[in-house]
């Protein structure tokens, strides 16, 4: 039982670092650097690095949520957290769920069009790139209280 809980929490944290690490890479490194990269070198980002990063990003999000929910269920506080009877972890859980929804149902579909991974009208690409950027920024903003909430479940803030 203890070893199982450790393993689930360990995989939850590893997946979470993969997810939030790449989210912060996109927002703190890649997006601000794009205007400084010469046009002839931009395909290296758009065609090689971004698709690879998006693969680990979206599956990191999926497994963070999967192992997080599994941990809460095995620990017996899943419903209390989701109904905010335990708000310290509950807020973090809801923020994480909203962020994962954004990854899979907004950012990834928009990036597939923006990066040319799927066929789409070329005129649509700038709008999809902007949508992906704004929702990625939304997730960056939400990651700050989400992580505070996750930590406060172990070490209360007040």
């Amino acid at each position: 039982m203890e070893a199982e809980l450790f393993l689930i929490r360990y995989l939850h944290v590893l997946s979470g670092i993969m997810w939030i690490g790449i989210l912060w890479y996109f927002n703190f490194v890649q997006i601000p650097s794009m205007p400084k990269i010469p046009d002839e070198q931009k395909p290296a980002i758009g065609k090689v690095i971004a698709p690879e990063a998006l693969f680990w990003f979206r599956w990191g999000a999926f497994f963070t949520v999967f192992f997080g929910l599994a941990l809460a269920w095995r620990m017996g506080y899943l419903m209390d957290a989701l109904t905010l009877q335990q708000p310290n972890i509950g807020f973090g859980m809801w923020l994480g769920l909203i962020m994962a929804f954004n990854v899979w149902f907004v950012i990834w579909p928009a990036q597939k069009i923006a990066l040319g991974i799927v066929e789409a009208d070329a005129a649509l690409k700038p709008a999809m790139a902007r949508r992906a950027m704004l929702f990625s920024r939304t997730n960056t903003m939400l990651s700050i209280p989400m992580l505070a909430s996750m930590i406060s479940a172990q070490n209360p803030i007040m």
Partner: peptide, 19 residues
């Protein structure tokens, strides 16, 4: 980006008081 990070910390304070 800076305003995004500041907004994140503001939300954190709101969340602490709501908790």
């Amino acid at each position: 980006l800076k305003l995004t990070v500041i907004a994140g910390f503001v939300l954190t304070v709101v969340m602490v008081f709501a908790t």
